[in-house]
Structures are given as C-alpha cells and as structure tokens.
Design a protein around this nucleic acid. Sequence first.
DNA 1: CTACGGCTTGACGCCGACGTCAAGGCAAGA
DNA 2: TCTTGCCTTGACGTCGGCGTCAAGCCGTAG
Lengths: 139, 139
Amino acid sequence: MRIGELAARAGTTARALRYYESRGLLPARRDEHGHRTYEERDLRLLRQIRTLQDFGFDLEETRPFVECLRAGHPEGDSCPASLVVYRRKLDELDALIGELAAVRAKVGEQLARAEAARDGLAAEALVPGGPEPVCELGG
Amino acid sequence: MRIGELAARAGTTARALRYYESRGLLPARRDEHGHRTYEERDLRLLRQIRTLQDFGFDLEETRPFVECLRAGHPEGDSCPASLVVYRRKLDELDALIGELAAVRAKVGEQLARAEAARDGLAAEALVPGGPEPVCELGG
DNA sequence: CTACGGCTTGACGCCGACGTCAAGGCAAGA
DNA sequence: TCTTGCCTTGACGTCGGCGTCAAGCCGTAG
C-alpha cells in the first residue's frame, strides 16, 4: 500500500503522513522507486493517531499509544505511558472546562448588566424626569 | 505619558501597544521627537482591551468596545455592537464547553476501560488458569 | 509520443499576538 | 564625555499541523 491509499483509508492526506514520518511517529519502508510503502498494521497506528487528535491530543501525546501498538500490545492504551497521558489530559480538560465556565459566567454577567443599563437608559428616555433608579449622581 | 509608562500602568508591554496601533486599535499622537504620547483616557481603552483578552476575546473582537468608549459612551459595552460580540462569545463558549465535556467523558471512559483491562490481565497473571473473564480468545 | 496520475524532496505560507534582536536617536546624570 | 535608559522602525522568530507550490521521476493508458 502506498501513501495515497493509506491516507485515503484513514481519512487524511499524504502530506499529513509525511509529516508524521518527519516526526518519527509513523516511519515507512520504501520500494525500489523510493516510494513509501505501508502495511495493514500501519493503518491501525494511523487510526490511533487520528482518533486521539480528534480528541484534541497533541501529536506528541499520541506517541505512547502508537509505540504501544507497535510493541505488539492489543490496544494503544494497553501501556502505562498511555494511561499517564490519559490522566494528564483529563486534568487539563477539567482545568480548561473550569476556566471556560468561569469566563462564560462573567461574560454572561457583563451582558446582563449592559442590557440592564441599556434598558434603564431607554426607560429614562421614554419617561423624562421619571424614576431614576440607583444612581447616586441623580437627584 | 509615553508608551513605556502606559504599558506598565496597564500591565502589558510597549511592543503590544505598538501592535495595537498597527491594527488601528489604539492610535497615538507624537511629540516633537516622534515619540508616541498617550493620555489618561487611553489607559481606559487599553484596560478594556486587556480585560476582554483575558476573557479569551480575539483582538478584533475588542474593537467595538474600544470604539464605543472612544465615542464617549460610559462603558465599552454601552453600544449594540459590543452586545453582539458578547452574545456571539457566549454561544462560542457554550459550544466549546459542550465539546470539551463530551471529549472529557470519552477520554474518561477510555481510561476506565484501559485500567479495567490492565487489572483484568493482572488478576489473570496472579491466578493462572483462573477465571478468564470476557475474552473470546481464551479457553 | 504524450498526457495523466501518483510519487519524491524542498521550501515557503498560514494563523494570532506579540517576543526579540538590530541599529540608531535623544536627553539627563555622573 | 560617557553611560544609561527610553524611544524609534524594520524585520525575523515562535508554535502546531499541516496546505500548497515547484520541479522532477516513473509507469501506464490512449
């Protein structure tokens, strides 16, 4: 199997595969013409990489999984190093989700406050000399 | 006030201010030496930019807020365009948080499954010929 | 013969928000 | 006078994961 076919079967591009090879992640043998050749097991490795990338893993973080598979283990996460990456990723996700939730809350508050201010001004404009609410400058 | 002082008072760098100016976000007057000069109100604009950036807003997304302040409004979010950005950001945050939560759940599952498999193998190793669980290859 | 498709390496482009370095100007203090 | 410090513009570096283009090789279908 050559690079184009492997890429297509994994739903990615030849360029990506060359990049993975340049990172030492997915080396290839060469045929008599210098073309890269791959085997079925390489498809397995590549799918492992793609799956983890879809989860937001950095390419480097997929390395333990790939090496685990290449070492003959049944799954990419059959090795301790992979579990370490899982746990670290979970921590990162929890931290990130927490930060984003806090930001979301603050932005929501800001929006609510700004809309209230806008409505307050609108009401004031509609009713001149009306009930100026909690403004210590008014009076 | 020159660029270094303004940067220090806003907790950022002169380089950042020059960048903002290059983007047309925070223009500066010049003194007789060609040095950038700023006034107190520029500090207000700059702080608005920094606050939004801390929330994860793109620099471009801070523009409506800055222009709103420059137009003389009491707050950067006193203008409709700013509220639009708020709402869009909230949607983005909700979507992102949702995706991350889904990924977190999947990674958590994978970790649990991998640990269970590992423990299963460990138990098998401790008890040779023992209760080989759900492995269709065993027997 | 020629076109075409697929492969090769090499190298620059991209995106965002600056960091960092180079080379030089200008003013005040020791 | 010399140094120090702050300022200027210009331009390249950073990071990740490739996209895209250039130039060229190889085999095959028409």
